[in-house]
């Protein structure tokens, strides 16, 4: 299966990755190789095989519904620590370029 330049553009946009045009040929080749492997997997007979959601032979453990985080002044302190590593913040909010719906 071949991967067109349009496919690359679409996948790159969905993943928010910038791809320059000179990278496209190599990328389509590599993606085509991945798909080739997927095609090979498709030929395996999986009748009667239960889909595996996770390779570990284990089930999800559960957490008790108990608050583990501090409230009040300590919560404000924790917030300050997180806000400090954000590019921009104000009034306790993370600031991002304007989102228009």
């Amino acid at each position: 299966m071949s991967i067109t330049a349009d496919d690359i553009a679409k996948i790159a946009k969905l993943a928010r990755i910038r791809v320059d045009s000179d990278e496209v040929p190599e990328l389509s080749q590599r993606l085509a190789n991945i798909l080739k492997m997927a095609d090979k997997l498709q030929t395996v007979n999986t009748d009667g095989v239960v889909p595996m959601a996770n390779p570990l032979d284990a089930v999800q453990r559960l957490r008790a519904d108990v608050v583990t985080e501090p409230a009040g002044a300590a919560a404000l302190q924790a917030r300050a620590a997180f806000l400090a590593i954000a590019p921009s913040s104000e009034q306790g909010l993370y600031l991002v370029p304007k989102v228009i719906e």
């Binding site: 608050v67 583990t68 985080e69 409230a71 919560a75 404000l76 917030r79 997180f82 306790g92």
Partner: peptide
């Protein structure tokens, strides 16, 4: 996560790592 879901608190005080 163990962050509280209480409504109407100070912004970002109930969002842990």
């Amino acid at each position: 996560s163990g962050s509280s879901t209480e409504f109407g608190q100070e912004p970002n005080t109930q969002a842990n790592a």
